[in-house]
Amino acid sequence: MSKPKYTIAVTGLNAIDSPGPGLAVIRALKDSKSFDVRIIGLSYEALEPGIYMHDYVDKTYQVPYPSAGQEVLVERYKYINAIENIDFLFPNFDAELFNYIALKERLLNDLGIKMSLPTQEQFEARHKVNLYEYGKTHEIKVPFSQMIFSTAEIPGVAANIGYPLVIKGKFYDAKIAHTAEQAQSHFNKISAEWGLPVIVQEFVHGSEVNVCGIGDGEGVTLGAVPMRKLYITDKGKAWAGITLDDEKLMEITTDLVKNTMWNGPFELEFMKTDKDEYYLIEINPRFPAWCYLTVGAGQNQVEALVNHEMGMKVEPFENYEVGKMFIRYSHDMIVDIKEFEQISTVGEL
């Protein structure tokens, strides 16, 4: 039987030192045994490395920033789709997900572009500011956290959870405070940059373990692979990691997917304490940049997800190889200025 050929568009081509997941998703798609693929890259800036990696990306189009609004985005997709006839789209940036969730029906009905995304409710509920409540609802340990709006509220929360504690921005940034003075100074810095509220979170001591997986929207975990980072960059990104054999973590994951009816890809970030307790730190509703490790470990989750969304019957993965590692490397491409000119002026390459 001949394999189908899909045209799949992918964002997050910024394979830089703090990489977007785009290239990893593309490599997984290229490795697919069940379908052939034409990759359409979607870039925001002219220097995203993926634009110039022609072995992976067949054609790239510039797309508007999320802040330009949904109407502009739809207009751009109408144009791109008229040329490319996109079957499937992988948004890979946190900041763009809000728009894509809102546009899911429209892109599907008007342009025939499929996406696999959580619902707006699932997306909001797992947001950092709501995560503690989320944990309570779904019976998962989440470090105690509270939104605060002024430094006057710090002593009250600190009396409850003690120092050290973590001060977190609404969207980004987290700093550990060991004293009230530090907490206050972190609050000021973070609120100046990310606005209010600021989140004060209980500090959980342990090692970080992550899970990359996919949910089918009906409670079934189609795939899940746990990983521990072996080395992190100064920006806190994984440099190397290794797959784990951790039944308890897998159990927590499948329960979470079952309880939340999670739809689409996810990355769960946990802190594992010395007492083997798992605290959920964050849920990312997309594939992480290290998702190619799941392919290496025997679960091509990206391929499985596409097949699932294309209406194929997909059996959940039952195994993965434990002790598989990824080690990230950087690589200097040589690029002609003509290519930079083209993506900069025409918006296509």
Binding site: I337, E341, S344, T345, V346
Partner: peptide, 17 residues
């Protein structure tokens, strides 16, 4: 300047539209 309006300054490495 190319036809597409792309301008490159070889001295500084800056590009313009």
């Amino acid at each position: 300047v190319s036809d597409s309006g792309f301008l490159f300054n070889p001295l500084t490495g800056d590009s313009f539209s």
